[in-house]
């Protein structure tokens, strides 16, 4: 059995299993709760089994406990287990959580898995569909090749500036300005540092 550390890992592994056996793979989500009274009973039983004395309910009040005790009222505890299981191969993938913040993400995972189970194709990425299709350029004849070279020399209007132009735009003056900026920034930082030091001396 594979126990996934993250919901993402659970999704990846489950999708692989669903892909391999879409007919038989099933995902079971178990949400189980325990009341505080039952928890107390169970711990008492466990301690009795171990031969340890049960902790006394009324203890001498130590300073940190009164601050923490009222903030944690006795509530039901619960855990959520997701299991992907294929009965034919016996493969199991499991993920366990106790936090509610994982629920939204996990239901998303279930939805993604259901798409795999139902054979619903995932939508293709919009970026790929919008991307321009590269037109196949025919192999240039010698004359055309000369023409291509001539075109290449002329800078295109719509195309982005070539790398040489990009480097050239700030110029040597621009570099100097940048350096000055850096120096100024460093100076201000130093002044603040001095101020802090003075504070420290006081």
């Amino acid at each position: 059995m594979h126990i996934s550390p993250t919901p993402q890992d659970f999704l990846d592994q489950s999708l692989l299993l669903i892909q391999a056996r879409p007919k038989t793979t099933r995902i079971t989500t178990t949400y189980s709760t325990t009341s505080p009274s039952l928890r107390a009973k169970k711990t008492a039983l466990w301690l009795a089994k171990k031969g340890k004395p049960t902790p006394p309910t009324t203890t001498t009040i130590s300073p940190p406990t009164p601050t923490t005790a009222p903030t944690t009222p006795q509530q039901h505890t619960a855990h959520l287990t997701l299991k992907t299981y294929d009965p034919v191969s016996g493969t199991t993938i499991q993920f366990v959580t106790r936090e509610i913040r994982d629920v939204g993400r996990l239901v998303g995972v279930l939805g993604r898995a259901a798409r795999g189970m139902g054979g619903v194709k995932t939508q293709p990425d919009t970026v790929m569909s919008d991307a321009p299709v590269p037109t196949p350029t025919p192999t240039p004849t010698p004359n055309q090749a000369v023409l291509h070279v001539a075109e290449a020399d002329v800078p295109r209007v719509g195309s982005p500036a070539p790398t040489a132009a990009r480097i050239g735009t700030p110029g040597p003056g621009g570099e100097k300005q940048q350096q000055q900026h850096q120096q100024q920034a460093g100076g201000s930082g130093g002044a603040q540092g001095k101020g802090k030091k003075k504070k420290g001396k006081k």
Binding site: I27, T33, L38, H76
Partner: peptide, 15 residues
């Protein structure tokens, strides 16, 4: 289920 002393909900999905 949340009100009970010990309770579970099982949700299974398959094709």
């Amino acid at each position: 289920t949340t009100k009970q002393e010990l309770g579970s909900v099982f949700l299974t999905q398959k094709r």
